[in-house]
Design a protein around this nucleic acid. Structure first.
Lengths: 145, 145
DNA sequence: CATTCTGTATCAATTTTTGATACAATAAAT
DNA sequence: ATTTATTGTATCAAAAATTGATACAGAATG
């Protein structure tokens, strides 16, 4: 993969998980972080973070609140969130993709290769997903603290 | 993945495998194909194919011969070649990559995330590799013929 | 009503990938 | 020997994808 979205999304989720754990009071607000704060540690632009936030929110992994004193927080316990949840939330393109150019009708292999690659792609995503599913966010933050 | 190298490499290897099986005589030449021929079915430029050929050759998956009447042929039986052999031959960048920007020294998560992503990346490649290793080139050509 | 967030559109900048031309190295064929 | 055809590579242009940056509407607080 050429893009850093997943790495940044994991950073965001880890920060939110730690923030959630830090919180001792029942004060919901104390676990809120905004895109500017998150952008610092990820060393990127706040809009890049907000784009990730949108995806993570749509997938139900975080809660966002707009307006003054708004921000972002985890929607679930870190033990209930896997890396696959984060990965699929981003809706990235498959790691293995086909050549979308038209096939050479004269060549049976060229005609069949599209379907072949599709099958391989599905198998690959499944294998990757299974691994990512085994990794919980709660495991990640243990190693950091 | 954004690139079509793997899809094209699988096409090339499939063509060569079928070519090898077609051959009834002991004439080694009859299984040779050149980059121009392979480029037609892949609907791309011959140089793109030659770049793939180089990688596949370096990995010992095919034999190449230069000069007039030169070309390419499989170096092993299709049953002894897996999709992982093809994948690793291309030396593509990892599907999950880290953000190579410097960490925020103030933030423990930012400092630790690099190593975290590396570990995830290794696990992902391993999972993907294991799946691809289970798929043999000989299985692919069965479905086409 | 001012302030400060997210959400999103838009465009520029950067990076990656692919395509194309050219040519040296090599081997066969004539 | 000379011509011809092929891989291997360098180089550059073109295209595509990703990221960065500015701007602003929508929303919630104070």
């Amino acid at each position: 993969m050429v893009n850093k979205q997943f790495a940044n999304a994991v950073y965001v989720m880890t920060m939110l998980a730690i923030q959630k754990n830090k919180k001792t009071t029942a004060d919901e607000k104390s676990e809120l972080m905004n895109s500017e704060q998150l952008a610092v540690g990820a060393n990127t632009n706040a809009v890049v973070i907000r784009r990730l936030i949108c995806s993570l929110s749509r997938a139900g992994l975080i809660h966002t609140t707009r307006g003054k004193a708004g921000g972002v927080s985890l929607a679930k316990e870190p033990a209930l969130i896997t890396l696959n949840d984060i990965y699929t939330a981003l809706e990235l393109s498959d790691t293995i993709s086909h050549n979308e150019k038209p096939a050479d009708k004269e060549c049976p292999v060229s005609c069949a290769i599209h379907q072949t690659i599709m099958t391989i792609s599905e198998g690959s995503e499944k294998a990757l997903g299974k691994y990512l599913e085994s990794q919980k966010l709660s495991d990640l933050i243990k190693k950091i603290k």
